[in-house]
């Protein structure tokens, strides 16, 4: 075992280099003076300045943030309900279907999700007049549907590994079920909810394919703007935008990771004491 370890570690290091190399190259070249992305012409932050003057991009970013925030909140509520149903109620009619419906969006190709939802929205508008037209609302509904599946998986695993004796004790002492849920269950699963919210937010912020299908003429999200400019080739502005996104996301994830890590440590210590 010991002898093979350096070999494995080398493989791991290569893996990380493969995962992070391309992202690092974007960050480095976002500070490149030249418009020719791959020729280094000196350090400059001018592309960041240009980003701030690109009104189309700023509008799209604002729309994406609005959609992502609404999506994340909706997905956390729906995903938590689905996780509660699947973990706490072992038997009910339609359980198998629910289980499939929360697993399938995780692997379903986005083109199928996008096209099928668009056809649904068109048919709904035809027959009941809602949703009226396509845009922010239809994108949010579509994103909530696939993001809730991810939230369900995260909350499900947390609920399954949770100690239920506290809830039982509170119920035995006469607390109402709803009160038990809000004062005991919810705080215990809060880290999973926070992680789920963040994941739903980033998934929505990142989605190009589903949004392109269900969006209307007036609503252009950030990935749609990025996509149309990327199709024309590499541009330093997109590099600068990528750097901002990468830094924002990685610092959010790092903070969340440290918080989760500390909480786990504390829980372990308490367990060791008890």
């Amino acid at each position: 075992m010991k002898r093979r370890f350096p070999l494995l570690m080398t493989a791991l290091m290569f893996g990380y280099a493969f995962l992070y190399g391309p992202i690092l190259s974007l960050i480095v070249y976002s500070f490149n003076e030249s418009r020719l992305v791959t020729v280094w012409a000196g350090f400059s932050t001018k592309w960041y300045g240009e980003l701030l003057h690109n009104q189309q991009l700023l509008d799209a970013a604002w729309l994406s943030v609005k959609v992502a925030a609404t999506t994340a909140c909706g997905a956390v509520v729906l995903g938590t309900l689905a996780a509660l149903a699947l973990v706490r109620f072992r038997r009910f009619r339609g359980r198998g279907t629910l289980q499939v419906m929360v697993t399938a969006p995780l692997v379903m190709p986005e083109v199928i999700i996008g096209l099928s939802l668009l056809l649904l929205f068109v048919a709904m508008q035809d027959s009941i007049g809602w949703p009226d037209g396509r845009g922010q609302l239809t994108i949010t509904l579509a994103h909530t549907t696939f993001a809730m599946a991810y939230v369900t998986v995260i909350v499900q695993s947390r609920l399954a590994h949770m100690d239920q004796s506290l809830e039982e004790a509170a119920l035995d002492l006469g607390a109402r079920p709803l009160k038990v849920f809000f004062t005991i269950t919810l705080p215990l699963i809060a880290p999973a909810l926070a992680a789920g919210w963040l994941l739903a937010f980033t998934l929505s912020l990142d989605d190009l394919v589903v949004a392109s299908f269900v969006s209307g003429p007036g609503a252009t999200t950030l990935p749609m703007v990025v996509y149309s400019s990327v199709r024309l080739g590499v541009s330093p502005e997109i590099n600068a935008l990528a750097t901002i996104i990468v830094l924002l996301v990685s610092s959010a994830v790092a903070i969340a990771g440290v918080l989760l890590y500390r909480q786990e440590k504390r829980a372990q210590r308490e367990q060791n004491l008890g």
Binding site: S25, L198, V226, V234
Partner: peptide
């Protein structure tokens, strides 16, 4: 965490990064 982190950053942008590398 290091394996998951890239998954959180934009998919579109990670694919785009390869254009600059491979062209």
């Amino acid at each position: 965490m290091l394996i998951i982190l890239p998954f959180w950053t934009s998919f579109l942008i990670r694919v785009y990064a390869w254009i600059g590398i491979l062209k």
